[in-house]
Design a protein around this nucleic acid. Structure first.
Length: 347
DNA sequence: AAATCCGACAACCGCATCGGA
DNA sequence: TTCCGATGCGGTTGTCGGATT
């Protein structure tokens, strides 16, 4: 790393002629680069404990650290700060990231503001290593409509499923929880009345959510979902609204381009990134994201294979039949609405 | 057991923005 | 108004450790 850093990020043409200010500083002061040592961490923490955050260049000069102010700031914000949350991202956090990214794009710091204890760097890495990997394997652009909708209609519901499962909602009900992310019979009721029959009060997100008239067992969503919703008002409404738009659109807004994905890709995908446990397979006729995409592309055949039974999966959103071209990519709405009706007792 | 591959993460870079002189 | 330093942001890459061959 340090070798590359030694050459800096300068273009080859410039590097021989122009020396950046930072490089000059580095050479003059023999600034350290690369991984931080324990001693450096201690120095930084002690200095901040005494003087507080901020004025990073001053800190760098006065603390005895042979680092740039930038480097000190980054080390503190991304690693040493006491409220940094460690460990894997929870399904709730993943879901939030997916949703917020669909809203804001690569505004990592903005997204991070809604995930307490998580840094923009961590979120960015998650996106690149998990989400973009899926897109690469599917041979679609991560920012494409196709992929975004696949994420929304396939990935998000499963994350919601996991959250619901964590709340110990029985399978038929947590199917409905999954469906909540994908569809609704109206933009704002989201089928949320279908779940949380267990009246669970705990939240794996780490903060307690007071039951409200809209999140109670009578009409609310799962508590985990509710917890997730808290930091971002309109989150669930936006999601449901998006799907309402999908449902309302008979022609679909996709312009195709996805086609049917090849079997090699399909075989390579598995459940990468989704982190589902073995028990989850029982309920998912679409075991992969690619599966989902293919099903939306190939129209009725796959979709209808599951249209008959309870408990055989809630993600065959395709209404099937009567679609052509790009429409086939976008067929989850009607069937899903019916599924929601089934799981929810057809109310 | 060794070599290679790959995913995850930490860290750096350049550029943009902000605020004070 | 302009300049300049400080800070923040997003993109990129090196390193490390575990998995696979």
């Amino acid at each position: 790393m340090s070798q590359r850093r030694g050459a800096g990020g300068l273009g080859a043409a410039n590097s021989a002629v122009i020396m950046s200010k930072q490089q000059q500083e580095a050479e003059e002061m023999e600034l350290r680069r690369g991984p931080w040592t324990l001693e450096e961490d201690n120095l930084l923490m002690n200095y901040i404990a005494c003087h507080g955050e901020g004025r990073w260049n001053l800190l760098a000069r006065c603390s005895g650290l042979k680092r740039t102010g930038k480097s000190c700031r980054l080390r503190w914000l991304n690693y040493l700060k006491p409220d940094i949350k460690r460990g894997n991202l929870t399904p709730e956090e993943q879901l939030l990231i997916l949703e917020l990214h669909s809203k804001w794009g690569n505004r990592w710091s903005r997204i991070a503001q809604h995930l307490p204890g998580r840094t923009d760097n961590e979120i960015k890495n998650y996106w690149r290593t998990r989400v973009q990997k899926q897109a690469r394997q599917l041979k679609v652009d991560a920012n494409s409509t196709v992929f975004r909708d696949a994420v929304r209609c396939y990935w998000m519901p499963r994350l919601l499923e996991k959250m619901a499962a964590a709340d110990q909602i029985p399978p038929p009900l947590h199917h409905a929880a999954g469906a909540m992310a994908g569809v609704s019979s109206s933009p704002f009721d989201g089928g949320s009345h279908l779940i949380n029959h267990n009246n669970v009060s705990s939240s794996s997100y780490g903060h307690q959510i007071e039951p409200s008239p809209t999140t109670s067992s009578a009409s609310g969503c799962s508590t985990a979902a509710a917890a997730m919703i808290q930091p971002v008002p309109c989150f669930s409404d936006q999601m449901r609204w998006d799907h309402h738009q999908i449902m309302q659109s008979s022609s679909g807004e996709l312009d195709g381009g996805a086609g049917v994905f090849d079997s090699a890709t399909m075989g390579s995908l598995g459940l990468d990134g989704l982190d589902l446990g073995p028990a989850d397979y029982e309920y998912y006729p679409h075991s992969t994201l690619l599966d989902y995409l293919n099903s939306t592309c190939t129209g009725s055949a796959m979709m209808m294979s599951s249209s008959g039974g309870h408990g055989n999966g809630g993600y065959n959103y395709c209404a099937g039949g009567g679609m052509d071209g790009g429409d086939e990519l976008y067929c989850q709405a009607a069937a899903a609405a019916r599924k929601v009706g089934e799981w929810g007792g057809g109310t």
